[in-house]
Nucleic acid binder design. Structure first.
Lengths: 218, 218
DNA sequence: ATAATAAGTTAGACCAATCTAACAAATATG
DNA sequence: CATATTTGTTAGATTGGTCTAACTTATTAT
């Protein structure tokens, strides 16, 4: 049973790895907002527990065990976010912080019941996969909106960057997961996208926003 | 913001006081399953925080502040139990352990939303009061069934001892919160109570069981 | 009232998680 | 290639929560 703190380190390493970032002591210390000696010390302890492998100046790698533990925390986090939003009517911008706390609850029953109530979702509303009870995730292959050509119709399936700002922005534009977007025109000048929505309104999205939108051709 | 550990001490002192137990260092250490020096040390720290008042060999008393903090933890615990049972379909015997963990979540919004979903209950299914957002509890003035005279009609409003055994026992006898009981006869010999239920069946309750039944005259 | 028991305290230790200051090792750069 | 910069490590301290052993101070019981 990892402590709450160690669970947070596991999660940080898990995400850094998924982001293809070389997980160094320095990188980890930045992500965790702790000093380098603190991160160093923690990594040693986690290695002793058999959750990761580390050699001086080499990237930190989670072991199978560590990877599974990390995935299970992510599972708890994402199920909680969905539960808060769908069952408890919280807004998407509110759920993250609460889920950061609830993800450390040890009772598996609690999360399995959420899972059941939610109908065993495999993706959360950001389009991020929810690991199953064994820490296995369904691999998805979405495209960034920026790779889509003019005239193409796509469905919004996920967000690459789930910042609160982006969520609020999309909400204002009436775009949500599952929304169908038609790329009317791409402005050569600034790479902004002119998009036709299902309600026949036209909106303009900057290149920066488009980079964060993960879509699937329809 | 009390740490999780200190919240547990606050809760323990809160309950010991409510049970009219003289809260000594020894009593507290037993309740918390820690050594006496540990309890002693903690009590000193909590006094510094202004949550309680303690003088050598004198009973520990919560300050207004400490009382309020304790009540708020109880609020979180009881709301969680109700939410788990009523919204998430957990059995009443399963909810306690999960609530012990969730009661330490800091987000007030989370509990306020539970409260809303549950319809702002003031009593939990054991008949125990749920403190409000300010830690105020609806003072109820129930009587033990043992104080009721022959011929009197009462309504079951709460349980003084919420052991699983008692819950199962009452369930078998078809007695639940809100049941109306008529005291037909009190056996002088062993102080057992002969009770007439709403369905016109007659049952016999031992003095011991009657002590745990909190009722209101009707 | 004095001895036995219970209650409370002190001292010293440990572990988890953190810090700063100072130093060492590897990498990058002029 | 030599030096500057980045990266990692050591050492020593702190805080929160815990322990045991040994001691002191009340309470209780004979």
């Amino acid at each position: 049973m990892p402590t709450q703190t160690k669970e947070n380190y596991l999660k940080a390493i898990y995400f850094l790895s998924k982001e293809n970032i070389n997980v160094s002591i320095t990188e980890l210390s930045k992500r965790m907002s702790v000093s380098k000696p603190t991160a160093n010390n923690m990594v040693k302890k986690m290695q002793e527990k058999g959750w990761l492998f580390y050699k001086k100046y080499k990237p930190i790698k989670l072991t199978i065990k560590g990877e599974r533990l990390g995935a299970l925390i992510v599972r708890k986090h994402r199920l909680t976010e969905m539960f808060l939003s769908q069952v408890m009517s919280f807004g998407w911008e509110e759920v993250h912080d609460i889920a950061e706390e609830i993800e450390h609850i040890s009772s598996n029953l609690f999360f399995d019941r959420m899972d059941e109530i939610l109908g065993f979702p495999t993706l959360d509303p950001h389009g991020s996969p929810i690991p199953d009870k064994n820490g296995k995730i369904l691999e998805v292959n979405y495209l960034k909106l920026t790779t889509i050509k003019e005239g193409q119709k796509v469905k919004l399936c996920g967000l690459d960057n789930s910042s609160k700002d982006l969520l609020v922005y999309l909400n204002n534009k009436k775009i949500k997961l599952g929304s169908v977007l038609l790329v009317l025109h791409i402005e050569k000048f600034d790479n902004s996208f002119e998009i036709l929505l299902e309600n026949n309104s036209t909106i303009l999205l900057t290149f920066n926003v488009c980079k964060s939108l993960l879509v699937e051709e329809v």
